[in-house]
Amino acid sequence: MQVGVPKEIKIHEYRVGMVPASVRELTSRGHRVLVETGAGAGIGFGDDAYRAAGADIAANAAEVFATAELIVKVKEPQAGERAMLRAGQLLFTYLHLAPDRPQTEELLASGAIAIAYETVSDKQGGLPLLAPMSEVAGRMAVQAGARALEKSQGGAGILLGGVPGVAPAKVVVLGGGVVGANAARMALGLHADVTVLDRNIDTLRRLDREFGGVVKLIYATQEATERLILQADLVIGAVLLPGAAAPKLIRREHLAQMRPGSVIVDVAIDQGGCAETSRPTTHDNPVYVVDGIVHYCVANMPGAVARTSTFALNNATLPYIVKLADLGWRAALRSDAGFLAGLNVAEGKLTCKAVAEAHGLPFHEAQALL
């Protein structure tokens, strides 16, 4: 199979779909890999490193999209990239379609087969291709929040861990999944006062075993969520409904009751955000203030630590890329029900129920397309 790796074009996105080591795995199996020139430069891999792994170098993205049967990316295809997709072409990347109707409609119109990293599941019900970036984002959320609490960023001027004689910041984490657990771990390491809310009792029990009672674990009723948000210095939105838009847990009216200069880090922004006042920001201009509350809503947080993130992502995606290249998409998805769950769009049909419900569009069972 001919596999294409274009350079990411989303603002301040330096990650790359495949590192040279991943390319070598494919070329050693007889596949051709075409990498756009400069695709790996942001994480320290020049074109020569890809050539040494057996890749060919394309002069531009148009050449990659025109040649490749399988496109491997990191972020959702931007408008110009979507225009280059063709019927029957495979796209394997993060998509986050639920809050993005234009992308959904254009992928449907393209006739391409789009498999989303974030909805691929494993036998335990986990999300193995979302997990690495969730780990990164959860850890980054704390350092981003600590920075945003500084007075120069519009924050209240609070040190996350406090000092002897001064209380630490109150950190409230909405969601105890991979993002939330990693955020709690980092915040606790900085000696903050940490509370995690979740609606899954088993998740709370798991976190209790991990943290040994040091982190407060609260069942996420509406009353508890609202009360703790209003008391927090830093709120980290870590909720996830796989493939679906994030629930709006922080309402506009809450902001007026929160402490001025407190911070919301909305890690759920890729899925629309869990605060009504959240809107995507970039690493160039990551924060804004609404009603005295600082919002950090960077939609590609792991892109700031692109080298770490790329290796973590490649470790997870490579077996799936190899399977697609070796077997083709139908046989690859037939062989693995969790992989099939990643299919969002195929040949003009929407195959992710959560996305179909989010946009009020017809849903088609993925199994029927195989």
Rank of each mutant, 00 (worst) to 15 (best):
M186V: 15
M186L: 15
M186S: 13
M186P: 04
A187L: 14
A187T: 12
A187R: 12
A187S: 14
L188R: 14
G189E: 07
G189S: 08
L190Y: 06
L190K: 10
L190N: 00
H191C: 13
H191Q: 14
H191V: 04
H191P: 00
A192Y: 09
A192F: 09
D193M: 09
D193S: 11
V194W: 04
V194L: 08
V194Y: 05
V194F: 07
V194D: 07
V194T: 07
V194E: 05
T195D: 00
V196N: 05
V196C: 03
V196I: 15
L197W: 03
L197P: 04
L197I: 08
L197H: 05
L197F: 06
D198F: 01
D198G: 02
D198Q: 03
D198V: 01
D198N: 09
D198C: 02
D198H: 01
R199S: 05
R199Q: 04
R199T: 11
N200L: 09
I201M: 10
I201V: 12
I201L: 11
D202Q: 06
D202I: 01
D202W: 03
D202F: 03
D202K: 03
T203S: 10
T203L: 06
L204P: 01
L204D: 01
L204T: 02
R205E: 11
R206A: 13
L207V: 09
L207S: 07
L207P: 08
D208V: 05
D208F: 13
D208R: 14
R209W: 04
E210Y: 07
E210V: 11
F211H: 04
F211V: 07
F211M: 06
G212S: 12
G212Y: 10
G212N: 12
G212K: 14
G212P: 14
G213L: 10
G213K: 09
V214H: 14
V214A: 15
V215Q: 08
V215H: 06
V215D: 07
K216T: 10
K216L: 01
K216V: 04
K216F: 00
K216Q: 15
